Simulated scan of single mutants.
Amino acid sequence: MTFVTLNECPPGLFRTEDGTYGFKSEYSTTTVDAYCLESGEYFWGGATNAEERGALKVEPVDFLAQIKAAEAEAARHAANLDNEKAAHDRTRERLKDAEAAKRDAENQKRFFESRASSAEKRMEQAQGTAMELRGRLLELKANQMIRRGDLSDPRLPDAYDDGVPF
């Protein structure tokens, strides 16, 4: 609000230029009835007569409007805090989800590393077996080892063939 003279000020609370609070009554006789808010004394504001007092600059104060404005500001601030808290909670949930995904990925990595290690061991075993079989094949070719079943017609049963090479 702006400063007006005490005579122009509406009834109610007012503040002087030096920060003193007062109250102007609506029940005035010939001069303005104004009182100091702190002490309840008749308000003079440093003036020496009624005319000077009526010409003093004061600012009307509407505490109820200021309280409502402060409450509205507090509500806006509370809503902003609620929004920030909700955003913080969402971020915390995303972080938990990311940590869980990281743990899952690490578990999968360990699982696949274990499978790869097992596959490598089986591959080494298969290579060893293949080398052993190659060696036996070369030995068979070199020694010309033949089973009894290889000498007769395979379609005919051989009474002496026990399936064991000699």
Rank of each mutant, 00 (worst) to 15 (best):
A101D: 14
H88R: 10
D97R: 13
I67K: 14
K96V: 03
R92D: 06
E71H: 14
K68S: 07
L81Y: 03
K68V: 03
K68L: 09
A86E: 06
E71N: 12
A78P: 01
A78W: 02
D82I: 03
A75P: 00
A70I: 06
D89Q: 08
A98C: 04
N83A: 10
R76I: 02
E84P: 01
E84I: 09
A101R: 10
K68P: 00
A69W: 01
L81C: 09
E93R: 06
A72V: 03
D82E: 15
A74K: 12
H77L: 09
K85C: 03
A87M: 07
A98S: 12
K85N: 11
A78D: 08
N80I: 05
A70F: 07
A69S: 11
A74V: 06
K68D: 10
N80P: 03
A75R: 07
L95R: 07
A69K: 09
D97Q: 15
R90K: 10
K68A: 09
A98P: 00
L81V: 11
A79N: 05
D82A: 15
A74W: 13
L81P: 03
L95D: 11
R76W: 00
A69N: 07
K85A: 09
N80M: 09
A87N: 11
A75D: 07
R90T: 08
L95Y: 11
R94M: 08
A79D: 13
E71G: 04
K85W: 07
A75M: 02
T91I: 03
K68M: 04
A100R: 15
A101F: 00
A72I: 02
L95I: 05
L95W: 05
R90S: 08
R90M: 07
A100I: 13
A75L: 06
K96G: 01
T91L: 12
K85T: 10
L81R: 13
K68C: 01
A75E: 08
R92K: 14
R94N: 09
D82N: 12
E84S: 14
I67V: 10
A75Q: 08
N83V: 05
A69H: 02
R94A: 14
E84A: 14
D82W: 01
D82R: 15
L95F: 04
A70M: 10
N80R: 10
R94H: 10
D97K: 11
H88I: 02
H88F: 10
A100Q: 12
D89R: 04
H88Q: 09
A87S: 14
E84K: 15
E84N: 14
H77S: 13
N83F: 05
D82C: 03
A101M: 01
N83W: 05
A100W: 13
A98N: 08
D82G: 06
A87R: 15
A86G: 00
K96A: 10
K68E: 15
D82M: 14
